[in-house]
């Protein structure tokens, strides 16, 4: 290929041949790239396959390991939960979709679905005392000590979050909300307003609140504090202690003792 700048008519021919050869070269580079990517992908797939087979037991039994594994899947854009239901997300991930179904689908998926069932059970059982707002922490502890069929399961926060997420397609209204620094599972589709959230947050930090504490710390008028508290009481989101000098309002989180 000549780099000499042509003059006259031949220059046109030269230029067009130049651009075709550029194009063909580009295409060959691209296809090379593609094959190498495909090889990489297939190598990776088989490695992942091996890894999953080798560590299936650990994935099921060790919460830390499972969380790391889930994080890894997340990072490479594979959803272990979606894997077995959705047959291949898009052309490229086709093989991976069925891989999950074959290798992990039975195990990892069932694990999360089973966990989700327990979470739903716990939410339902405790709804009376916590108004449908169950802390992820408390939920985790209860699952660990669980008396449900099959005994306790060793799970991490991450597992619980994932399990709740897996309920989404059911349209069940289960979701994760942040109240203060705490993550909670909401099993009743109800929005907390800003005042209610700040009261729940204060309770988390202080253990309990009274109307005058709200007035002093948040600068609220008495009527405002009282209204918020009344709403929270009506939604079973707080419990009242009338035996204190001033009415104290407590979070029901401590009531979550499924031992009895």
């Amino acid at each position: 290929m000549s780099s000499r700048r042509g003059v006259g008519l031949s220059a046109f021919q030269n230029r067009s041949s130049l651009s075709t050869s550029y194009a063909s070269h580009g295409a060959s580079i691209r296809s090379e790239h593609l094959t190498s990517l495909q090889t990489q992908l297939s190598v990776f797939r088989s490695l992942l396959h091996n890894f999953a087979i080798q560590h299936a037991d650990t994935i099921k039994s060790n919460p830390t390991f499972r969380a790391e594994f889930a994080r890894m899947c997340n990072a490479i854009g594979v959803d272990p939960l979606a894997g077995s239901n959705v047959r291949g997300k898009g052309g490229g991930a086709k093989g991976i979709g069925s891989l999950w179904a074959k290798v992990l689908g039975g195990d990892v998926n069932d694990f999360y679905f089973e966990l989700a069932v327990r979470v739903v059970e716990l939410c339902r059982a405790s709804r009376g005392e916590n108004g449908g707002l169950l802390g992820v922490d408390e939920c985790k502890e209860s699952v660990k000590r669980g008396k449900a069929i099959g005994g306790g399961m060793d799970v991490s926060d991450d597992d619980i979050l994932r399990a709740v997420k897996s309920l989404k397609p059911l349209g069940s209204g289960f979701s994760i909300v942040n109240v203060g620094s705490k993550q909670m599972i909401r099993s009743i589709p109800k929005e907390l307003n800003k005042d209610q959230s700040s009261v729940l947050e204060a309770i988390q930090i202080l253990g309990y609140v009274t109307c005058s504490m709200l007035e002093d710390n948040l600068g609220w008028e008495h009527a405002r504090a009282e209204t918020v508290i009344k709403d929270l009481l009506a939604d079973s989101l707080v419990w009242v202690d009338l035996q204190a000098p001033e009415k104290e309002y407590w979070s029901p989180a401590l009531m979550n003792d499924f031992e009895d």
Binding site: Y208, W239, D241, P252, M255, D260
Partner: peptide, 24 residues
Amino acid sequence: FPTYHQSYPPFYTLQPNHQTLTSQ
């Protein structure tokens, strides 16, 4: 005794909310 009996004061006040009361 369960933990709430040991350390949860509102357990000793019957709750005004019916739903909460039932569970209590």
